[in-house]
């Protein structure tokens, strides 16, 4: 059991969960009727991608990507002998983290703008249900195609 777990599930478990989360988000974006729900789905969708990226940068048994001055010296002396050199295997890959900081910020910006648009829609239509909004547009179309 444990062996099965370690060879078959563990290596890719994170990736599977990210796919599941992403699909939940995508489903919500397409199929949900309420606009706020769609946006929550969109956020889940984005965080799933962040999960994927962060999982890419993980190294088993490594520490956080901060190299204190003391540790730097120790790590260098301990592993390589050459002073000042750092063993890269001991620290998590910082690049995905940086990228995901950006992605998080982009995500919140998008969410903010989308919420603003949603509020504007509520002002115009008095509802946030997609089918009701489309119905209103259709009715307006029949009356006059402008606007």
């Amino acid at each position: 059991m444990k062996e099965f777990f370690e060879t078959s599930i563990e290596p890719h478990f994170n990736y599977w969960v990210y796919v599941i989360l992403m699909m939940i988000g995508l489903w919500a974006v397409i199929a949900k009727n309420n606009l706020i729900k769609k946006l929550i789905g969109m956020s889940i969708f984005q965080t799933a991608i962040i999960l994927f990226y962060v999982s890419v940068g993980v190294k088993k048994g490594s520490g956080i990507p901060i190299i204190p001055k003391a540790k730097e010296a120790a790590a260098g002396a301990g592993e390589h002998g050459a002073a000042g050199a750092v063993n890269p295997d001991l620290f998590a890959n910082p690049l995905p983290h940086v990228l995901m900081l950006t992605a998080i910020v982009v995500g919140v910006s998008t969410l903010g703008v989308a919420l603003a648009v949603a509020q504007q829609l509520f002002k115009d239509f008095g509802t946030l249900e997609e089918d009701e909004i489309l119905e209103q547009i259709k009715t307006a179309d029949k009356a006059s195609p402008d606007g």
Binding site: T47, I50, V54, S55, G57, V58, K59, S62, G63, I64, P65, I66, A92, P96, H97, M100, L101, I104, V105
Partner: peptide
């Protein structure tokens, strides 16, 4: 997972 900065931001 060791991504402290990301965790902080999130």
């Amino acid at each position: 997972m060791g991504a402290v900065d990301v965790a902080f931001t999130e």
